[in-house]
Design a protein around this nucleic acid. Structure first.
Lengths: 197, 197
DNA sequence: ATAAAATGAATGAACGTTCATTTACTGACA
DNA sequence: TGTCAGTAAATGAACGTTCATTCATTTTAT
């Protein structure tokens, strides 16, 4: 069995366990059982419990960034790029619910409590949004007075909160596609130059 | 010493300790020390550790709701109401940073892990936004195709994410007033009827 | 045969909660 | 006014459980 196999198996198990119980309520033995390894084995691949979480972030967000960047690169129109980013993020919530839960909840915890850990991958992810906005401003499509550094937070926060609702309550709320469409419309209307129409 | 004194003292201490260490890393003895009471005294006022957190939510969000509703009631223009809500929420982050931190981080945790606890106070808070939007739609100021149930989440998520950034990094980021102004502008432009200007 | 990988029982520190004891308060009575 | 019984409030040491981590031993691969 290749090293990477067990490494990934533990990560995958951790995603499920953290999603279900949260980081602090998750036991190493839970992760071990779900990964099909012994408790001690986990310490051959990770330094400690927190290290599992950090590795999980780095590796899984890394993959997501690659995917969404690939999709966006094909486009010319920044409006379309923003739509794609929003749809992709919300789509991820449906396709990989557990991962989305962990990234959303535990990533924030870690951001806050591990002062030394600067989550560069996460920053890279939301900087995709500000890059789109800057491009739109250069092309004269988006209003120049909008600050990309603020708008990226607003947009990310909006879709993430919608995702959170859907994670908590998948049935009783709006359909994900409809949510993506609505949020896209609000922000596009909010960003576009009035002259362009 | 009146009962309410110690009750409130423990709540206040818990706000600080939870903000600094997070719920799971906070020890009862930390809260007790900061409140100036013995560990056991806490259990005369609260059933258990989680009960402190829940009481804290209910009571403190309750006060915030009253404040912001009072401010909004005075206004006629839904655009102005939305501006006030946004400014008020972000202002709270500056004025009561620890409380904002706890509400932001731990409230979500609880929402997720305490299945039985429906956080009605929080719902009441963000429903202020949807009420504003509905009013604006009735007056023909906001676009009718916007769903208030989605827009309220998007708006709350946007300001909350901006707040989060500011909590994590008070110095290196944009000024809170500027953030409030930018976010208000984006959403107002995103919600307004094109015919109205 | 040797090394590398994996195991899982044992360890020990951490900490929420309890409860036997102490302290503070109240008002009745001389 | 001072004493004291009765009650409520507060205390904090001790308890018991939980669980991350370790490491002596076993299994697997070469």
């Amino acid at each position: 069995m290749r090293i990477s196999d067990k490494h990934q198996k533990i990560i995958d198990a951790a995603v499920n366990v953290f999603a279900e119980k949260g980081f602090f309520n998750a036991r190493i033995s839970d992760i071990a059982r779900q990964a099909g390894v012994a408790d001690g084995t986990i310490y051959l691949y990770f330094n400690n419990k927190y290290d599992i979480l950090i590795s999980l972030f780095e590796e899984e967000i890394g993959k997501i960034i690659l995917e969404v960047k690939k999709l966006i690169e094909k486009e010319e129109d920044p409006r379309r790029m923003l739509e794609i980013f929003i749809a992709q993020h919300l789509g991820l919530v449906r396709r990989r619910k557990s991962l989305a839960e962990v990234l959303q909840m535990e990533l924030r915890q870690s951001n806050k409590f591990m002062r030394e850990y600067r989550n560069t991958k996460f920053i890279e992810y939301i900087d995709i949004i500000s890059a789109i906005i800057r491009k739109g401003q250069e092309m004269g499509v988006f209003r120049p007075e909008v600050k990309p550094g603020i708008a990226k937070r607003a947009i990310f926060g909006a879709i993430d909160e919608c995702a959170r609702l859907w994670i908590l309550n998948p049935d009783t709320t709006y359909d994900i596609n409809e949510t993506a469409a609505q949020v896209s419309r609000i922000f596009l209307a909010g960003l576009e130059q009035p002259s362009v129409q």
